[in-house]
Write a protein that binds this DNA or RNA. Structure first.
Lengths: 342, 342
DNA sequence: CTTCTTCTTCGAAGCGCTTCGACGATTCGA
DNA sequence: TCGAATCGTCGAAGCGCTTCGAAGAAGAAG
C-alpha cells in the first residue's frame, strides 16, 4: 500500500499537480467544477499531504513548539488543561504541537528554530528573569509567552491578570464586612524563583486591602497537609481576629479546610475562604469554595491565536491580560462583627 | 541571515554535499581528516539540517507522536513525569515528540500517519476495549501502548505489573501480621471504563490475600476529602477488625490519613496503610507512607526504547511488565493481635 | 474580425536532503 | 607484477510539494 501523493490525485482527477495544490491551499481561484473533481479524488484516494515535502517547499512546518518547564511547585492540573487547549486550538488552525521540556534549554530552542521543525514557539511559566527571553529576541522566531518576564518589551505575553485576581479576592472579603484578612500563597520556592504571577497576586491583594482600609498579612505555604495546618495555626495564633483567608495555592486548597476544621474554626461562620484555583477544585470541597478562576483554557487558546496571527505577519499587542472572574460559593459569608475589633 | 544549508557546509569544507551527509549520518566510512574538516565547518557555520528536507529525502521524520487521553480520573503528576521522560528519552535518540490529545481520535492517528509527520506512535492510558487498537493494526504504523487492551496480540505493550503491585501490598501486610485488609481503589468511573490497571491491581491484591489466608475487601473511591472520609468510615464500620489498608488512588492518598485521624484511628498503631503512588507523594504525608512505586519515568523511557527498536526494524517483545518496588516507611507496623479474631 | 483582458490551468523550477552507482586511488593476494 | 577487492569521495537523481511565469480559452472592446 504505497502512500498516496499529490501526483496520484492529479492523475485521478485529470488535472495538473499544481491545480491540486491550488485547490487545497486556495491560493489561486479554480473553477467550481474542477475544484469539486479534485476534492472528490482527494477523498476517494484518502490523500494526506506529506508534511515534510510541504514544509520543505513552503517553508512552513505547520507545527508550533510548546515549551513546558516541569519544575517543582508547578500546578499540574492547570498546566494540563492549558496544554490540552493549546493542542486543540492549534488544530483549528491546521497546526500540530511539538512538546519540548525546558531541560533542553537554549540549545533546544536554537535547534528547533534552525531546523525549521516549527514555525513558532509557545513558552510557558516564564519567569521574571528568564534566561530564555534574551535568546528569544536573538532568534527572531515568532513566539508567545505565558507569563511576564521583567522586560516584556518587544515580546508577546499572555496571562491571567493576577494582580486583579488578588484584588478581587480582597475586595470580595471587604464587601462581606471582613476587616482583617490573610493570603496563603504558593510555596516559598515559587517566590524565590521570581515567578511573576505569585508576586503580582500578592501585591494586587495587598493594594486592594489597603485601599479598602483592611489589615492584610501574607504567607507562603508548602503543599503537604501538615505544613498547611502549621501555617494556618501560626496565622490564627498571631492574628486571632483574622476572619478572611485567600488561598492561592491549588494543592493546598483542600488541606486548608481540613486545617481549619481541626483548629475548630467553622467555614464560613468563623472564617471566610476564597481560593484562586480552577472551578472543579473549588467545587469538590465542602463547603464549596468561593473562587477566582485561572482560565487555563482561555489562556492557552488565546496564546495560540496570537501566535497564529504573528505567523501571518499580523501585528499583535505585546501584552494580553485576561480578566479573572469570581464565582461565589459557600465558603464566604457576610461577616457581622461580634464585637467591634479594638 | 539566510539559514545555513548542507551546501554551505560542503563548500566551506571543500567537499561534496553527499560527503557532508555521510559524515553526519555515519552511513559510509569517511577518512578521519575529512570527517574532522566537515565537523569543524558544521560547528563554525552553526549548521542544523532542515527537518522537512531530511524527512522528505529519508522518509523518516525523526518525530514520534505521544497520544495523551486527558480524561477524568487521570493521575496528572504521574502522567507529567511520564511525558517528561518520553521527551527526554526520545531526544537521546535524536527524535522529537509531537503532542496529540485523544480528542482527535482515529482521524488524528490516520492523519499523522498518512502525512508522515511522525515515524511512530506512543499511546497512553490504553483501555481494555480501546477503539484505537483496531485502527492501529489497520494503519500498520509502528507503535507502543502504555497499558494493555483486551487483546494485545501483535501489539507492543508496556506497563507496571499492577497485578504484582497489588499482590506485593497484600503480602507485605500479611508479613506484618494483618489478617483483614482492604483496598481503596480508583474512582468508580475508572473501573467502569475498563482501564486495565485498576482491575489488575484489584485481582492481584485479592489473589495474594487469598493465598495468604487473609480476608480482603475492596471499594472504589472518589477523590474529594469528604468522599474519602465517607468511604473509610463505612469500611471501618462494616469491618471493625480491619487493620490494613491499601490505597490505590493517588489523589486520595493524602485524604486517607486525614480521614483516619478524624475517625480516631492511629497510623500505624491501629491501621497500617500502604499506597500505590509515586515516592514524592508518599514521602510528603505524615507518617510517611509505605508505598509501591509507579515508575512513570521507567515506563516512559522503556516505551520510547521499544518504539525506537521497532523503527529500526528490530523484533521486540509484545509485552513488557515492569516490576513494582515496595518502599517501607512509617505507615505500616507489625500488627500484634490484641485478641485472636473470633 | 482583431486585439486586449481576464480567468483557468499547466509545466517546470526549485526547496534541502539522502542515497545509489560510479570512479579513481590504494592495498592485497598470488 | 597484475588483476581484484577495498576505500573514500563525488555527482546526480529523486523525495512530494509549492509557486512562478506563461499559455490557452473565452469574452470584452474597438
Amino acid at each position: 500500500m504505497r502512500t498516496v501523493t499529490i501526483a496520484d490525485v492529479a492523475k485521478h482527477a485529470g488535472v495538473a499537480v499544481s491545480t491540486v495544490s491550488y485547490v487545497l491551499s486556495g491560493k489561486r481561484s479554480i473553477s467550481a467544477t474542477t475544484r469539486q473533481r479534485v476534492l472528490d479524488s482527494v477523498r476517494f484516494l484518502g490523500y494526506h499531504p506529506n508534511a515534510g515535502a510541504r514544509a520543505l517547499a513552503s517553508k512552513r512546518a505547520n507545527v508550533i513548539a510548546l515549551v513546558l518547564p516541569l519544575r517543582a511547585g508547578m500546578n499540574l492540573p492547570v498546566l494540563m488543561q492549558f496544554a490540552t487547549s493549546v493542542v486543540t486550538t492549534a488544530r483549528l488552525y491546521d497546526h500540530d504541537v511539538l512538546l519540548m521540556t525546558a531541560d533542553e534549554g537554549a540549545d533546544g530552542l536554537r535547534r528547533v528554530a534552525a531546523s525549521a521543525l516549527v514555525d513558532g514557539l509557545l513558552l510557558m511559566d516564564v519567569e521574571i528573569h528568564d534566561p530564555r527571553v534574551p535568546l528569544l529576541r536573538e532568534l527572531g522566531e515568532p513566539s508567545v509567552l505565558i507569563g511576564f518576564p521583567a522586560d516584556p518589551e518587544g515580546l508577546t505575553c499572555v496571562d491571567l491578570d493576577f494582580g486583579r485576581a488578588g484584588a478581587i479576592c480582597a475586595e470580595h472579603l471587604s464587601e462581606r464586612g471582613h476587616r482583617k484578612i490573610a493570603l496563603l500563597g504558593a510555596p516559598g520556592v515559587v517566590y524565590e524563583r521570581g515567578t511573576g504571577f505569585a508576586e503580582r497576586t500578592l501585591s494586587g491583594f495587598a493594594d486592594a486591602a489597603r485601599r479598602r482600609g483592611m489589615e492584610a498579612v501574607a504567607r507562603p505555604c508548602e503543599e503537604s497537609f501538615d505544613e498547611v495546618c502549621g501555617t494556618v495555626k501560626v496565622l490564627l495564633g498571631e492574628h486571632p481576629d483574622l476572619t478572611g483567608l485567600v488561598v492561592h495555592n491549588e494543592a493546598a486548597v483542600g488541606h486548608v479546610l481540613g486545617a481549619l476544621r481541626i483548629l475548630g474554626r467553622r467555614v464560613p461562620e468563623d472564617v471566610s475562604v476564597v481560593a484562586i484555583c480552577p472551578d472543579d477544585v473549588a467545587e469538590r470541597t465542602s463547603p464549596a469554595l468561593t473562587s477566582v478562576l485561572v482560565p487555563a483554557e482561555e489562556v492557552g487558546s488565546q496564546a495560540v491565536r496570537l501566535l497564529m496571527a504573528k505567523l501571518d505577519g499580523a501585528a499583535v499587542p505585546e501584552s494580553t491580560l485576561l480578566e479573572p472572574r469570581l464565582t461565589i460559593r459557600q465558603s464566604t459569608a457576610l461577616f457581622t462583627r461580634q464585637e467591634d475589633s479594638q
